[in-house]
Design a protein around this nucleic acid. Structure first.
Lengths: 248, 248
DNA sequence: GATGGAATTACTGTATACAACAAATAGCAT
DNA sequence: ATGCTATTTGTTGTATACAGTAATTCCATC
């Protein structure tokens, strides 16, 4: 992530070493791991939209106090994976149809716009890495691990964006892909996954050939196909409109 | 959600600090206000890049405890306005030249791409609002309030993006504009502000006429002009190269 | 039996205390 | 006087305690 990694000032090596480091040296890593665990669970739909995320429960599970949990929940909230309602706590975000449209429109604009840059910077090593990712994704799909496949697909798109060389836009794409996974989990048909077939492999081909425009057009169709595969039925059983139901 | 446009309710000034505890009915608003205060101070360069933001000091100034301050600092860190170094605390981010390039490339892609949509949804009321914003900006510039002008300019671009109807992309633009203000504050020449002249008014004209493509091209030039006006000298006095300085 | 209200419960919001760590400073030896 | 080590200090990281509020349950009343 874009967390700051300041160039560390080297202090004079202390040979003392009288006390070995305590276990708590990298509490930061632990936080990152927990964040990833929760994030993945949401993206893979093991935590379903609307599910409540109680601070106590999470603190209990991960063995840290509520303080750390709150920090993580807030980060997830800023990424719009969880929703924080003032005195009701946190829950997994349930994307609306409008939000879904916004997200896919945004991906259309950004990811497609990035393709020429990616094509320009695409080398042999990068292509190989992407192919490996695509392979893993297909494998997960074949073995029935649909949730994992959704996440791997998102990873693929993110890696692609990173190859553009623009870290800021890559971060945006990362956020959009996370939310997309959530959207797919809600509105997607079971067994009809978004990035199936060999779309990703085809895309790599165009990029490797340096054909940015072709890749751009292909990405556009690819995203449109995913969006089209969704069934955008907003289940609004939350607030039944009595007026409308009982004639007004 | 984009929380920006909320017309802020001004609370009555609390005279008695004593009862401030009870006052916490809307602690959320207070937090939002503090966030805005710090954010604005950074964007307007009253807090200069590199400035340390000690939790105690901030907690003292705003009359809340470190807990709330940490929350706000973390949000600012996620928006990359402040940098959080593990056990050294928070400081105002000093954008690098690379980051600056990424940010402006991103704006080029997103803001320009949004223009057609904006043109399509542009009505009389929206145009009037934008003109008013542009007016305020010019006025601030004329009266020597450069920092305020920078912020107002950012507000203009954000409002524009919001008019596209895509909340997600508007939020991205908001973040990019904040960072741009920081970049301008660091790399911009004094007295040679980015969005001067009547660029914004011209842009409104094209949009009002429904000429999305024209607006897009104009926005592209506008952003290029701002970027070109920066003096991208990375002051690297951190690590003076003694070899080079003293003969070699 | 249903409805409204009061007491209870469960959970979040905030502050604060304490521990851990890095920097600054003083002290000591060479 | 210089360089290294120890102590002190300042600041963040984490946990916990307490307070306040929404949800729930139970009881009384209609």
């Amino acid at each position: 992530m874009s967390d700051a990694q300041a160039p560390e000032k080297r202090r004079a090596p202390v040979k003392e070493g009288k006390e070995s480091k305590k276990e708590s040296k990298e509490g930061d890593e632990r936080h990152e791991a927990i964040y990833r665990a929760v994030s993945d669970a949401i993206v893979e739909q093991r935590l379903k939209p609307g599910a409540r995320l109680r601070e106590d429960a999470l603190a209990d599970v991960f063995g840290i106090s509520r303080t750390g949990i709150r920090k993580i929940l807030q980060r997830l909230a800023l990424e719009q994976l969880v929703t924080l309602t003032p005195r009701r706590g946190a829950s997994v975000t349930r994307p609306t149809a409008d939000e879904a449209k916004d997200v896919f429109d945004a991906r259309q604009l950004i990811e497609c716009g990035l393709m020429p840059d990616v094509a320009r910077r695409m080398g042999e090593k990068e292509a190989a890495e992407l192919r490996e990712m695509a392979r893993e994704e297909r494998q997960a799909l074949r073995s029935g691990q649909q949730s994992v496949a959704i996440r791997l697909s998102a990873d693929f798109h993110v890696r692609l964006a990173q190859l553009s060389g623009n870290a800021t836009l890559a971060e945006f794409v990362e956020r959009l892909c996370s939310r997309s996974s959530l959207i797919l989990a809600v509105y997607g048909h079971r067994g009809h996954l978004g990035c199936e077939s060999h779309d990703h492999d085809d895309l790599i081909g165009y990029l490797e050939a340096g054909n940015g425009e072709r890749a751009k057009a292909f990405m556009s169709r690819h995203l449109k196909a995913i969006e089209a595969s969704l069934s955008m039925v907003e289940e609004e059983e939350n607030v039944p409109d009595l007026q409308q139901i009982f004639g007004g």
